[in-house]
Design a protein around this nucleic acid. Structure first.
Lengths: 216, 216
DNA sequence: AAGTACATGTAATCTGTTACATGATTCC
DNA sequence: GGAATCATGTAACAGATTACATGTACTT
């Protein structure tokens, strides 16, 4: 979550202005985590107020308003502190999961045609995958011994590859499953035409499929 | 993002009060997407104002303040509309990625000991994986023909399994990589003791490893 | 009688998004 | 000279997080 720490990490790699930082962020960490220039400027101002970073005017003789930020020692220490505190893994929070659940809840009557959306997403994931693989081939040629820094960066890149590949495979799988489902849409032995999901009141049917309660 | 739609989906599956919804959400969709009771109450109020849902007092004769929400037709239509509009895949935005980059940027001098954190995360992912697999065995026994609804729910569950498995594998891999790295921490051919990352000013070294710029 | 779980909220704060504003510089 | 892009910001709002508040019902 902490954008400040992500920005400082980027500044540790290279001191730069807000604008440059925004561009660099977009092209590196931003592939995992997008931030607008607004957030970045606001956060830079705050971090400077906290004494984590400092800025100098660009060495272009005042031609531009550019201000170059660098990480101070307090900032460096803060990054170290933060890096060592445990953080929970992110939720996957993907709309597609909810849409699938909605599709299941609404039943075969309402054709949500999620396959179009999944197809679209498949293309997105494949595109990213190709891009990542190109970087891998360019920056981490096989067989070469890598420095500590490069090894870690390669690790990060491989995470992106794993992620996109996982989703691409998932999309393919989902499409297959949906296609086996749609032809016999109205032939399945589903409950006939109960438009509303409301149970008979008083019946405490709390046993959802997919709920994570261990057997009582 | 749209929490409202996620909540309506849950209400479509079963009408319930804010409190119950919060609990159910936590145990189903919440495994992918956490929401606090605050968000839920606020959102319920808004959705009622929009005419998407309506509430009745619980059929317990006013003993409790419980209000049971159900989805109205306008809400149902809104879910359908939303389900068909394209949504971008979520960022992965995982702090671990940034921490790894920080580790690389700070160099081998500062021992961030990320392996402890990764170990911890590995346990979390394994725990979830076990839980998901238990549900799978309970609710989707192999070989049984499933209804349309159950098939979709199984799909969602398999996504969770894929996700946790992917991260668990990643953690194992990362630990191995880090362990090959740490013994010879100071023997690698790294740049010697340049405490600051700042380049000689004027040298526009914009060629970050791991940046996604296609060859110029 | 005291404590836990139920049930619903207000308020403050922080993070994220969108729109608008402004002036300088570089490219054509 | 006009357009694009560089570079920095203000303002307003929407969404999420955390802390606090309040009262009832069930349990021991």
């Amino acid at each position: 979550m902490s954008l400040a720490h992500a920005l400082m990490t980027s500044l540790l790699e290279k001191s730069s202005s807000g604008y440059d930082l925004a561009r660099r962020f977009d092209k590196s960490i931003g592939y995992f985590w997008h931030a607008t220039h607004q957030q970045i400027y606001r956060e830079l101002a705050r971090m400077e107020a906290s004494g984590w970073i400092a800025s100098d005017l660009a060495p272009d003789g005042g031609k531009t308003r550019k201000r170059v930020y660098r990480v101070l020692d307090a900032g460096r220490q803060e990054v170290v502190r933060w890096a060592q505190e445990p953080t929970p893994p992110m939720d996957m929070r993907d709309d597609l999961m909810v849409k699938l659940r909605a599709d299941a809840a609404l039943g075969a009557h309402s054709p949500l045609s999620l396959d179009t959306e999944i197809e679209r997403r498949l293309q997105l994931h494949r595109t990213k995958l190709v891009a990542y693989r190109a970087i891998e081939a360019r920056d981490f040629p096989a067989g070469q011994p890598l420095s500590r820094e490069a090894t870690i960066q390669h690790m990060i890149l491989k995470t992106g590859i794993m992620y996109e590949q996982g989703w691409a495979r998932w999309c393919e799988d989902a499409l297959r499953t949906l296609h086996t489902l749609s032809p016999e849409a109205s032939e399945s032995p589903a409950a006939p035409a109960s438009t509303h999901t409301s149970q008979t009141p008083g019946a405490p049917d709390d046993r959802d499929r997919l709920s994570l309660a261990p057997e009582p």
